[in-house]
Design a protein around this nucleic acid. Structure first.
Length: 815
RNA sequence: GCGGCUGUGGCGGAAUAGGCAGACGCGAUAGCUUCAGGAGCUAUUGGGCGAAGGCCCGUGGGGGUUCGAGUCCCUCCAGCCGCACCA
C-alpha cells in the first residue's frame, strides 16, 4: 500500500466542510422538539497562544458535545474571550502597544488554533468581553445591581498591591501577597465599589446541595462562605457607658470569659486608652504586613487598655486588651477571652497571667484538674461546671439555654457569622469595563442612564499606574455633564474587576446579538442552565462563586428563571511535564501547534484524553503521543484497505464472528464510559482493542463484518478524533458520521453461550473450565468439581463448602 | 493543626456492584520485512524459583472483617490539594 495516514490532508478536508456548512451552529428559533444541552468550557483568557491546558479542556468538552449531539440533543457549544485584564495592560506599560491590539492579536491566534483542533464550536455566537457591544450589558447589569443596593461604595480597609498599583479582592490575596505578581500587600483606607455578595451567603451555601459538582469543590465553597452559628453577647463598659457586642460560637463557655480583647483597627481603641503605649502598638499592628501579622505560631501580643467590661452572666468586671490576634473584619472586631476553652485565648492568658477558669468538663472528670492547653470538647458528654444555674448541663444544651437567657435580659441573641466578605470590584486600572457612574457636585453620585450606555473606554497614551486609575488622565472623557441636572460632573475612573465580565458571559451566549437587552428571557429559558461546565480547579472559588451570585441576584430582579448557572461541573487535572507544572520560565511547555503540525490534531486530542482520567493531573510523555499516532494510523490503513477489498453492499449477516462481537462490545463499553463517567481514557482503550481485533481478523472475517467493525471504530473515535472518525466512516458507509445516531450495541452479541468458569480453592485461582452461560448453580458446582487441577490440589483435603457466583466462579472452602 | 484526595509492573494507567490483578498504551526483548530508518507486521514482557510441567510471592507498611480484599474497617507512612489566630 503506497498511501499512508496523512492527518494534514484529512483534517483540512473536514475542517473546510464544517466551516463552509456551519455545521455546529444552532438556532434559537428552531422548534424545541429535541432536548437541549448546553456544553461550556470556561472562558479563555487570550494571552499569547493557547496552551496544552486549553487543549485538554476543549478535548473533554468537545467529546461531551459530540456525544450529546449524536444522542439527539440540540447542543449549544459556543466560544468567546475574557479579553480585559492586567496582563495585556502590563504589556502595554512595557511596550506602549495598546492592550486592545495585543489582546486581539492573541484572539486571532486562539481562533486559528481552535479551528485547527477541529473543535465543534458555534462560531456565530463568538464575542470578546472587551467589545462595547458586550460590556454595554456588563454596565447595564451593574446598574441593576446598583439600583437594588447590591453595588455600593464605601470606605474600607483594602489590600493594596504596590506593584500593580491597584486594590485586590480578598479572593485575590494569597498569604498576604498579590495572587498575580506575588508582591507583598499593604493595608489602605480607600473608597471602593463592592457587590453585596454577603447578602446571598445563605443561599449560596444552601443551593450547593442542588447542583452536581465535585464534592471537594462544594467543600471549598462551603469553607469560603464559612458560616458559623453562635450568639452575639453584649459586654458593657460602665466607665464609658458603651455596649460592646462580641460574636461567639461558644456561648456555653460564657462563665469562663475572664478578659476582653479588641482588634487594633477597632474605632473605639483610643477612646478607651489614649496612651503612647497603645498608639505605638496599634500603629505597629496596622503597618505590619498582612503576612507578618497572620504568621503561624506567632506569639500572642497585646496591650492592656486599663478598662473593664462586665461579663453579663457573672457580673464580674473583666480587663480589656487590644491585641492583633483579633481581626476587625470578622464578627464585631472584639472578642470575649475564654482561655480554658479556646487555644488562642489560652496562649494570651498565659502570656498576661490571666485567670484560666474551666467551665466545661467531661462528665466523669475532675473539673479542678489543671489544663495545659485549651479544652475544646462540647458534646453531650461534656457538662458545664462553675457556671451558676447552668452547672451540670450538657454543653450543647447549655449553648441554647444561655443564649435564650441572654435574649430574655436583652444581653444578647443568637447570631450567625460568615467568613465571606463583600466583593470588591473596583480597580484603578485602564483595561477593564468602565463603571457607569458620574459624580455631580449638586446631585452627588448619579448612575449613567441606560440609554447612554455603553460608557466607552477612551483612548489614552500613558498606561502606567500612578495610584489612581490611568483613566483619570483622560480629562475630556472624565469631564461630563450630570444626567440628572445637566451641570458639571466627573466620571468614575475606576474600572471593574474582570471577574465581573465572566460572571454572566454564559447568559450572553444564548442571545449574543441582542442589541436591545442583554438577553431575551424566552431564549434564555430555552438554553439555561449550562448542563455541563468544564474547566480548571483554579476557579473553584472565585469565578464559580461570583457567577452563582450574579445569577441569583438577576433571578431576584425577575430577569431570568434559574437559581444556579452550572448544573454539572467537571474539573480537569493539570498536564505536567517531568512531574512539574509547565511554565515558560521552566522551559518545559508543550506547544499544541507544533504537535498538531507533526502528528495532527486528532492524535494530540486523543493522546491528551488517553493519558489518564481527565480529572487527574497527568504527565506529558512524548513517546505516548507516538503510540496514539500509531493507533490512528492503523485505523486509517485498515479502513483504506477495507474500502478496496469489500463493498458497502456486503451484508452483516451469517454467524456472529469474534470481530462482530468485539465491535458490539466496544460500542457498549464506550457508551458506558462516556455516559456514566468521564472515562475517556478507557473509552479510547476500548477502540484500540477493537482495532487490534480488526487486524487479527483481517484475513478471516466476513467482508460485511469487517466493514461494520471498521465503520464502528470510526464512529466511536469520532468524538475524540473527529477528522479521522469522519474520514473512516465516510470510507466505509459514504455517510457523515455526525449526522448518524449514536450506535447501539446488540445485547445478543454482548453475551456468549459459553463462559470461562473460574475455579477457586480458598479464594485462590486453581483452574478455568468452560461452562454454558446459562448453567444453574448446581451444574456450575458439578463442573467445577470435575476440574483435574482441583483434584490434584485437593490432595486428600476435604471440601467443606462451595460458594457459587453464577456466570463467574466457584470457590471451594477446603480443610 | 483541621479537612479532603492519592499511593497498583521499568513508566502512564485499567479493574464500573467485594469475585480471574496488571486491560490499553509507552518502553524493552526476539523474529519477519526493508538499501536504510526515530517506519511497518508478528510474538513475548509483574517478581522469584525451575530444564520443563509447574510452584511461590505480589496493589505504600502493619492489623482486621469475609468463603474471597487493590476494592470495606482500624492504624501508621509518603505525596498532593484546600483551609488555617474566622472567635
Amino acid at each position: 500500500m503506497a498511501e499512508r495516514y496523512d492527518p494534514r490532508r484529512i483534517e483540512a478536508k473536514w475542517q473546510k466542510v464544517w466551516a463552509d456548512e456551519r455545521t455546529w451552529e444552532v438556532s434559537n428559533d428552531e422548534a424545541p422538539d429535541r432536548p437541549k444541552a448546553y456544553v461550556l468550557e470556561m472562558l479563555p483568557y487570550p494571552s499569547g497562544e493557547p496552551h496544552i491546558g486549553h487543549l485538554k479542556t476543549y478535548s473533554v468538552g468537545d467529546a461531551v458535545a459530540h456525544f450529546r449531539r449524536r444522542h439527539g440533543y440540540r447542543v449549544l457549544h459556543p466560544m468567546g474571550y475574557d479579553a480585559f485584564g492586567l496582563p495585556a495592560e502590563n504589556h502595554a506599560i512595557k511596550t506602549g502597544q495598546h492592550p486592545r491590539e495585543s489582546t486581539e492579536a492573541s484572539i486571532r491566534k486562539f481562533q486559528r488554533e481552535f479551528r485547527e483542533w477541529g473543535i465543534s464550536i458555534d462560531w456565530s455566537r463568538e464575542f470578546g468581553t472587551h467589545q462595547p457591544e458586550y460590556y454595554h450589558w456588563t454596565q447595564w447589569i451593574f446598574l441593576r445591581l446598583y439600583e437594588r443596593g447590591l453595588a455600593f461604595r464605601k470606605e474600607a480597609p483594602v489590600k493594596w498591591c504596590p506593584n500593580d498599583a491597584t486594590v485586590l479582592a480578598n479572593e485575590q490575596v494569597i498569604d498576604g501577597r498579590c495572587e498575580r505578581c506575588g508582591a507583598e500587600l499593604e493595608a489602605r483606607q480607600l473608597e471602593q465599589s463592592f457587590f453585596r455578595i454577603t447578602d446571598y451567603a445563605d443561599r449560596l451555601l444552601e443551593d450547593l446541595r442542588t447542583i452536581d459538582w465535585p464534592p471537594y469543590v462544594v467543600t471549598m465553597q462551603e469553607n469560603w462562605i464559612g458560616r458559623s452559628e453562635g450568639a452575639e453577647v453584649v459586654f458593657r463598659c460602665e466607665e464609658l457607658g458603651v455596649d460592646y457586642p462580641v460574636f461567639t460560637t461558644r456561648p456555653d463557655t460564657l462563665f469562663g470569659a475572664t478578659f476582653f480583647v479588641m482588634a487594633p483597627e477597632h474605632p473605639d481603641i483610643f477612646k478607651l486608652n489614649d496612651s503612647p503605649e497603645v498608639h505605638e502598638y496599634v500603629n505597629r499592628a496596622l503597618t505590619e504586613s498582612v503576612e507578618e501579622r497572620g504568621a503561624e505560631h506567632k506569639e500572642k501580643t497585646g496591650v492592656p487598655l486599663g478598662r473593664t467590661v462586665t461579663n453579663p452572666v457573672t457580673g464580674e468586671e473583666i480587663p480589656m486588651f487590644v491585641a492583633d490576634y483579633v481581626l476587625m473584619e470578622y464578627g464585631t472586631g472584639a472578642i470575649m477571652g475564654v482561655p480554658a476553652h479556646d487555644q488562642r485565648d489560652y496562649e494570651f492568658a498565659e502570656r498576661f497571667g490571666l485567670e484560666i477558669r474551666r467551665v466545661v468538663a467531661p462528665a466523669d472528670s475532675d473539673p479542678a484538674a489543671s489544663l495545659n492547653e485549651a479544652f475544646l470538647g462540647h458534646t453531650e458528654n461534656e457538662r458545664l461546671v462553675n457556671s451558676g444555674d447552668f452547672t451540670g448541663m450538657p454543653a450543647p444544651e447549655a449553648k441554647r439555654a444561655i443564649t435564650a437567657w441572654l435574649a430574655e435580659g436583652g444581653l444578647g441573641k443568637s447570631a450567625v457569622s460568615y467568613r465571606l466578605r463583600d466583593w470588591l470590584l473596583s480597580r484603578q486600572r485602564y483595561w477593564g469595563c468602565p463603571i457607569p457612574i458620574v459624580y455631580c457636585d449638586g446631585c452627588g453620585t448619579v448612575p449613567v442612564p441606560d440609554e447612554q450606555l455603553p460608557v466607552e473606554l477612551p483612548e489614552i497614551r500613558d498606561y502606567a499606574p500612578k495610584g489612581r486609575s490611568p483613566l483619570a488622565a483622560a480629562e475630556d472623557w472624565v469631564r461630563t455633564s450630570c444626567p440628572r441636572c445637566g451641570g458639571d460632573a466627573r466620571r468614575e475612573t475606576d474600572t471593574m474587576d474582570t471577574f465581573v465580565d465572566s460572571s454572566w458571559y454564559f447568559l450572553r451566549y444564548c442571545d449574543p446579538h441582542n442589541d436591545r437587552a442583554p438577553w431575551d428571557r424566552e431564549v434564555l429559558r430555552r438554553w439555561m442552565p449550562v448542563d455541563q461546565y468544564i474547566g480548571g480547579v483554579e476557579h473553584a472559588i472565585l469565578h464559580l462563586m461570583y457567577a452563582r451570585f450574579f445569577v441569583k441576584a438577576l433571578a431576584d430582579m425577575d430577569l431570568l428563571d434559574i437559581q444556579e448557572p452550572f448544573a454539572r461541573l467537571f474539573t480537569q487535572g493539570m498536564i505536567t511535564r517531568e512531574g512539574a507544572k509547565m511554565s515558560k520560565s521552566k522551559g518545559n511547555t508543550v506547544s499544541p501547534h507544533e504537535y498538531v503540525e507533526r502528528f495532527g490534531a486528532d492524535t494530540l486530542r486523543s493522546y491528551i484524553l488517553f493519558i489518564g482520567p481527565p480529572s487527574e493531573d497527568a504527565d506529558w510523555q512524548d513517546e505516548g503521543v507516538g503510540g496514539v499516532y500509531r493507533f490512528l494510523s492503523r485505523l486509517w490503513t485498515v479502513a483504506a484497505e477495507t474500502a478496496e477489498r469489500t463493498s458497502p453492499e456486503d451484508a452483516v449477516d451469517g454467524a456472529p464472528s469474534d470481530l462482530l462481537r468485539k465491535a458490539h462490545w466496544a460500542i457498549d463499553k464506550v457508551t458506558r464510559d462516556m455516559r456514566d463517567r468521564f472515562a475517556f481514557n478507557t473509552a479510547i482503550a476500548a477502540v484500540m482493542e477493537l482495532v487490534n481485533e480488526i487486524y487479527r481478523a483481517r484475513e478471516s472475517a466476513p467482508p460485511g463484518h469487517m466493514r461494520f467493525a471498521v465503520a464502528t471504530a470510526g464512529s466511536l473515535i469520532f468524538q475524540f478524533a473527529p477528522h479521522l472518525g469522519a474520514e473512516v466512516y465516510e470510507l466505509m458507509t459514504g455517510r457523515r458520521v455526525w449526522e448518524e445516531p449514536w450506535p447501539e450495541a446488540d445485547p445478543a452479541l454482548l453475551v456468549s453461550d459459553e463462559i470461562q468458569l473460574v475455579v477457586q480453592m480458598n479464594g485462590k485461582l486453581v483452574d478455568r473450565v468452560a461452562a454454558p452461560a446459562a448453567a444453574s448453580r448446581e451444574e456450575l458446582e458439578a463442573l467445577a468439581r470435575g476440574s483435574d487441577k482441583l483434584a490434584a490440589r485437593l490432595n486428600g483435603k476435604e471440601i467443606v463448602r462451595a460458594i457459587v457466583v453464577p456466570g463467574k466462579l466457584v470457590n471451594f472452602v477446603v480443610r
